[in-house]
C-alpha cells in the first residue's frame, strides 16, 4: 500500500510537469490550430539559460524570474520572425518549421552547453516536508508552483481585458479584428505565455531528470498525450490530462509493464484517444453544420 501511494504521488509530481507543457501546447493550439512540436526544446533551452545564470551566481528566484521573462521574449520573437511569415501557408510547411525549430534548439543547446548531463538545483529543501516519506519537498514544491501558474493563467484569461481579447481572437479572428483587437499581437503574446509556462516546467523537472539537451523529448510526448486525453481545445482538460497521464504512467510502469516500456504508454494513449475519442475526455465534440 505504501509503495502504491508513493507511486501515485510521484505520478502527480511528473503529472504537474506534463500538465504545464500540455497547457502550453493547448494555448498555441487554440490560437493557431497548430501543435508546437518545438515547445519542449524551447523549454529545455530556457532551462539552460537559468542554469547559466545560476552558475554565474544569481540567487535562485532571481534567475527563475529572469528565465521566465527571457522565455516570454523568446516566444514572442519566434512568433514574429518565424511563424507569422509562414502563417497562411500549408500545414506541411508549418510542421517542417516546427521540426526545424526543434532541431535548432536541440543542437544549439548541445553546441553551447555540451551534451554532458548537468545537475540543476531545486529551490526547495532537501529533507522531506512534514516528515513524510512518500514524496520529496521538491516534488511538493513543483506541484505547488504548477498550481500557482495555473491559477495565475486562469485569472489572466478570466478577469483581464487582454485575456478576454486573447480568448476572442483565438475563437474568431475575423470578429476580433472587427472589435479592434490586434490579432497578430495576441498570437505573439500567446506564444510568449506558452514559452514562459514551458520554461517553468523545464526548471521544475530539471532537478529530477538532470539537465541535458534531450531532457524534454519524452516529456513532450507525455504532454502531447495529456493534451489529447484532456481535449486539445480545453485548457482544464489538458491540466487534468497531465496529472492523469503522470499517475497512469507510474502505476503501469510499476505494476504492469515495467519501466522500460513506460514511454509506450504515451504512444498507446495518443493512438487510443485519436481512434476512440478524438475530442478527448473533456474536449468539446464539435458538430459541423452541413
Amino acid at each position: 500500500m505504501d509503495a502504491f501511494i508513493a507511486q501515485v504521488l510521484s505520478g502527480l509530481v511528473t503529472g504537474g510537469i506534463y500538465a504545464s507543457v500540455a497547457l502550453a501546447l493547448v494555448m498555441i493550439y487554440q490560437a493557431t490550430h497548430l501543435v508546437n512540436f518545438a515547445q519542449g526544446e524551447l523549454a529545455m533551452f530556457c532551462t539552460y539559460l537559468a542554469w547559466t545564470m545560476l552558475d554565474a551566481g544569481f540567487p535562485y528566484w532571481a534567475a527563475f524570474a529572469a528565465t521566465i521573462a527571457l522565455a516570454f521574449v523568446c516566444g514572442v520573437v519566434i512568433e514574429r520572425v518565424v511563424i507569422r511569415p509562414i502563417g497562411e501557408s500549408s500545414v506541411l510547411a508549418v510542421v517542417v518549421v516546427f521540426i526545424g525549430l526543434l532541431v535548432i534548439f536541440n543542437s544549439l543547446a548541445g553546441w553551447i552547453f555540451t551534451y554532458t548531463v548537468k545537475p540543476f538545483p531545486s529551490p526547495f529543501p532537501a529533507e522531506p516536508l512534514f516528515g513524510n516519506h512518500y514524496v520529496s519537498s521538491h516534488g511538493i514544491g513543483a506541484i505547488g508552483v504548477t498550481l500557482v501558474v495555473l491559477a495565475l493563467l486562469y485569472a489572466f484569461f478570466r478577469f483581464t481585458s487582454l485575456g478576454l481579447a486573447m480568448r476572442a481572437a483565438a475563437q474568431n479572428p475575423v470578429s476580433a479584428r472587427l472589435v479592434g483587437i490586434r490579432v497578430g499581437w495576441t498570437r505573439a503574446l500567446g506564444w510568449g505565455l506558452a514559452a514562459a509556462v514551458g520554461s517553468i516546467a523545464g526548471m521544475m523537472v530539471a532537478p529530477t531528470v538532470y539537465l541535458d539537451p534531450n531532457m524534454m523529448a519524452g516529456i513532450l510526448l507525455y504532454a502531447f498525450a495529456a493534451a489529447l486525453v484532456g481535449g486539445i481545445d480545453n485548457p482544464w482538460g489538458a491540466v487534468a490530462g497531465g496529472f492523469l497521464v503522470g499517475v497512469l504512467e507510474n502505476l503501469l510502469g510499476a505494476y504492469v509493464i515495467g519501466t522500460e516500456l513506460k514511454l509506450t504508454v504515451a504512444l498507446v494513449l495518443i493512438v487510443g484517444v485519436l481512434v476512440i475519442r478524438p475530442s478527448g475526455l473533456f474536449g468539446r465534440v464539435t458538430v459541423k453544420r452541413v
Binding site: 478576454l164 481579447a165 480568448r167 476572442a168 475563437q171 472589435v179 479592434g180 483587437i181
Partner: peptide
C-alpha cells in the same frame, strides 16, 4: 463570439 458570454461580447465591443 459564441463561446463567450453575452456580457463578455459587449465588453469586447468596447475593447478598442
Amino acid at each position: 463570439f459564441l463561446d463567450l458570454t453575452t456580457e463578455e461580447n459587449l465588453r469586447l465591443g468596447g475593447y478598442a
